[in-house]
Each structure stands twice: as structure tokens, then as C-alpha cells.
Amino acid sequence: MKHLGLLQKGETAVISGILHNCPAEIRQRLLDLGFVKGTRVRIENISPLKDPVAYRIHHTQISLRREDASYIEIEINENEE
């Protein structure tokens, strides 16, 4: 099991859910932004100080801090570049 904070640039992942220990407010915000099960996500951009990271999801770029991204469970899609 992997979380979004571990995704590397160039990899594509599919979201499998949000972890149970995620605070309710953050969970809702992540869901609002489309971090829901079955959504494809990849890294678009990393800020100069390594954090936050901008993800491409639903054809938009959303940036999250790594600590918040770690609440999102993913499966890495090996077949895609």
C-alpha cells in the first residue's frame, strides 16, 4: 500500500481511498477537490523547496503539502509512463 506523498514524478497512480485517520475537515476538502476512489493522478510540478507538490487531477492542477497528500491511498499504475 502506498500513499500519494510517495508518488514519484513521471509515475501515474489511481486513488484507492482516503485513510481512516484523516481529520474530517481535510477529508471533505480532498473529496471536494476530486481526490476520490478511481481517479487518476500524477505529479505535474514540484515547488522549489520540494513542498508543496502540484498534482494533475481531473484536468486541473491542485497543489497539496506532502503531509496532507499522505492521507491519500494510491495504487501505482506500472503500465503507463
Binding site: A54, I62, S63
Partner: peptide, 8 residues
């Protein structure tokens, strides 16, 4: 706290 930002 929590930070999310869209890069338009």
C-alpha cells in the same frame, strides 16, 4: 493548517 491551491 491545511493548504490546497489550484494552479489555474
Amino acid at each position: 493548517s491545511f493548504f490546497t491551491l489550484e494552479l489555474p
